[in-house]
Write a protein that binds this DNA or RNA. Structure first.
Lengths: 240, 240
DNA sequence: GAACGAACGTTATGACGCATAACAAACACG
DNA sequence: CGTGTTTGTTATGCGTCATAACGTTCGTTC
C-alpha cells in the first residue's frame, strides 16, 4: 500500500501551487538577472491571470519574504551537502568546502544571494523575528559547527586577535550560549570575523567588483583569502 | 571685481538644477530608507512636474548612474577628509581612520552605500567603463595609498599569507602597475583581502545582520576586526 | 447522486509611476 | 524687437500592483 501524503488533497494542491510560484519566480529572476519579479510574468508562465496569485500571497512582499527564507534554506542545504561528503575530522577541508559553497552559491544565484544577504528590494524591510531570521541562524550554524568540532577535538588554536571586549563576551553569553557554548569568547569573535571576511569577498565578487581579475586569479585569490581567514581564526589552515 | 563663474548663465543654471535633482533624490532616499526614487516625488519636492526631469536625465537609470558616481566621490572624499587630519607617518591611525570612515559612511547613508557597493536597484546593471568605475578606482586609491606609504617607509611587513599565485601576479602587472607598482605582489593580494574583509563587516552591519549585537559590542567587534586585518596584511597594527 | 459551500480562478476596474508627445513660456542673442 | 533654443507645462499611453465582483471547480454531506 502506498503511503498517504500528508494533509488533505486540497492542502497538497495548494502547497504544490505555492511551490510552483516560488520556483517560477526564482526562474524568472535567474533568467532576467533581476530581483524584481512581476506578478504578471509569474502568472503568464504559470498559465494564470495575475490576480489569482493573490490567493496565495497577500502581496509582493510576502512572496519575497518566502523567497528569502527559501534562499537561506538553499544556502544551508548547499553547505550541508558539501560538508556531508567530507570526513568529520577533516576540518580544514570542511572549511574550504563550506566557504566554497557559500561562494559558488553566490556566483550561481546572484539574484537569490542579493535577496538573502544584500538589500533585497527597494522599500522592502525584513520582518523581525520572522522565518527569515530563523533560517539565517540555521545557515550560520553550519559555519559554527566547524568551529565547535575544532574546539571539541582540540584543534582550535588561539585566534590572531585575542583581546575580547566585555561587551562582546556579554552579548555572546546572553544571546548565543545555546549555539556556541563550547567555544571560547575569543573564538566566537574570530568566527564572526571569519564570516564577515568570507562574506566580503563573496559579496564584492558577486556584485562584479572583481570583474577586472581573470577567473583563475579570482579563484586563487579566494583560496588565499580563506586560508588567511582560517589562520587568523585559529582553524587548521588548508594547504595551498 | 568678482570672478565670472565658469560657463554661460544657462549652463550654470542647468548644472545647479542637476545638482538639486541629485540632492533631492538622495534626501528622499534617506528619508524613505529606500534606493527606489520616484520621479514624481523628486519633481514634487522641487516644485516641478515629473516630465520636466526628462530634460536632465533620459531615464531613471541615468540618474542612478550619476548618483552612484556621486556616491563614490562622497566615500572617497570622506576617507580623504579623515586621513587629512592625521600625520602621514601614523599609518595604523590612518588605517583605522580610513576603515572607520568606510564604516561610518555605510551606516550613515545605507541607501547610498547599497547603491554604490551592493546590487543597487532591481534590473539595473552598471555600464562598464563608465564614470562609476573611474570613481571607484579613485576611492580605492585612498586605501592603496596607505599600503604604498607603508611600503615606502619600510613599515610594510610580510602578510600572513605569502604564497602568491602566478595568475594574481600577472593580473597585477598587467592591469594595475601604475597604481600600486611600489608594493610587492603578496601585499597587493593582502590589500585586496583587507578590502574584502572590511567590506564584509561593513556590508553585513549595514544590512542589519549584526542587529542582534549591542552597538557597543559592534564597535568593539569592528575595531578588533580591522586590527586583525592590519595584522594579517602586514600593516602596523593599531593598539587595542 | 444531488445540493451545498469553500477554495480557486476569471474579468473588470482603480490608482499610480514611467515615459513620450505636443504645446506654451522664458530667455539669450542678433 | 524678433528669432531660435532651452525649459517647463498639460495631455496621453502603457504597464504594474492591487481590489472587487463574479463564475467555476471540487470535495464534502445528506
Amino acid at each position: 500500500m502506498v503511503a498517504a501524503p500528508a494533509g488533505t488533497r486540497r492542502e497538497r494542491a495548494r502547497a504544490a501551487t505555492i511551490d510552483e510560484i516560488k520556483t517560477t519566480a526564482l526562474g524568472l529572476m535567474r533568467e532576467q538577472g533581476t530581483t524584481d519579479v512581476r506578478f504578471t510574468d509569474i502568472a503568464r508562465v504559470m498559465g494564470m491571470t495575475p490576480p489569482a496569485l493573490y490567493r496565495y500571497y497577500a502581496d509582493r512582499d510576502e512572496l519575497l519574504t518566502d523567497l528569502i527564507a527559501e534562499g537561506y534554506r538553499a544556502l544551508g542545504a548547499r553547505i550541508a551537502a558539501a560538508l556531508a561528503k567530507l570526513p568529520a575530522a577533516d576540518l580544514s577541508g570542511r572549511w574550504v568546502a563550506a566557504a566554497s559553497s557559500y561562494r559558488e552559491w553566490a556566483s550561481a544565484e546572484p539574484q537569490q544571494f542579493a535577496l538573502v544577504l544584500g538589500m533585497p528590494v527597494p522599500g522592502y524591510v525584513a520582518p523581525d523575528e520572522g522565518p527569515t531570521t530563523e533560517a539565517a541562524k540555521a545557515a550560520m550554524a553550519q559555519l559554527a559547527s566547524i568551529f565547535v568540532a575544532a574546539a571539541e577535538t582540540g584543534q582550535l588554536g588561539k585566534p590572531l586577535i585575542r583581546e575580547v571586549s566585555q561587551a562582546i563576551a556579554d552579548c555572546e553569553k546572553a544571546k548565543h550560549d545555546e549555539l556556541v557554548g563550547v567555544i571560547p569568547p575569543e573564538s566566537f569573535q574570530a568566527m564572526m570575523q571569519t564570516w564577515a571576511s568570507l562574506h566580503g569577498f563573496v559579496s564584492l565578487e558577486a556584485h562584479g567588483h572583481f570583474d577586472w581579475l581573470e577567473p583563475d586569479a579570482r579563484d586563487e585569490l579566494f583560496l588565499s583569502h580563506i586560508r588567511l581567514a582560517a589562520k587568523a581564526a585559529g582553524l587548521p589552515v588548508p594547504s595551498a
